[in-house]
Amino acid sequence: MKSLKKYWLAIITSPLFILSVASTYALEYEELPDIKPGIVSIQIQEPVRNVGYTVGDILTRNMTITIKKPYQLIDESLPIIGYERRYKGQLVGIDLSDLKHVKKEHSDDVTHTLSLSYQVFTNNLVAKHGSLPQEYLRIINTQTKEVVKYRIPSWDFAISPLSIYGAVKIESDMSGFRGPLLLDNSNLKQYLKVLLTVLALSLLGLLYILGKYTWLPRMGGPFAKSYRLIRRSPNTPQGLQQAITSMHQSLNTTAGMSVFGGNLNEFFEKKPSFKPIKTEIEQFFALSRQVFFEPNAKHDIGHEPIKWLARFCRRCRDCERGLIPDALDSKV
């Protein structure tokens, strides 16, 4: 029970303690002497604009402070993140939200790179002044143990209201910060996306049609179609006739003329890529002659002409695609 009372007492008294410590720091700074000129040099990079900020915005000051030895920055004097600043007892509404500190020692001095980010927690019905507060740093002379102060100057800016107070005729408001008034175009964007998709699909379809119904060059040619048909052809006289007819049609389509055993040289002149399979083409015409015209004629294709035709057609397909045909004895 006693310990519980202790906790409550600590919770209640802690803000009072913090407040008393803060006021003690302020008093300490006022009492400390300023550092002599020439010891500390500073370069500050302020935010790019000094107007147009409102509640929630974060403003960052980047600064490089160089302190000559034997003076040295007391790190504990750097601003405290989250510390609420007051002016004449009122909260100013600009708090340090982030601090980055990089220290680099040289032979004669030390360079401190500070990045101070302040967040605006205040607003008004009309524009009002705001400022990133001045900060005091304590610096100690390491030889004499004398402690002095250095002031980082404040930076003024304007805090804008979130909305304009009262009735405003928007067309007459020529504020450059407002930006152009935009119409809602989300439906049009959606519509545009749909149309672009349709256009893309149409172009793909057109490409497919112009490519003679093939997705890649030299694919889906006459012999590729014949090959699919011949592989499905039954091993019957009708199937054989159908397969040979399909091969004839493919040869004719490829040559752009009717190809016969008597004009093969003309065919090879037109399509030199088929020259490697000249012997097989002649064998094919001998087979065709036996099947369609002269049953007594002989050919040297063997007893399974359908299988031979499938292999032959695949070689023709290779020639059609500009490839070197596979060996005829490879498996289907």
């Binding site: 055993g261 008597g262 002659r289 015209f293 002269e294 007594n296």
Partner: peptide, 12 residues
């Protein structure tokens, strides 16, 4: 020396 007509015979 053929026993049947072929297209080449007609072409000739």
């Amino acid at each position: 020396e053929r026993t049947a007509i072929t297209p080449e015979d007609i072409h000739a």
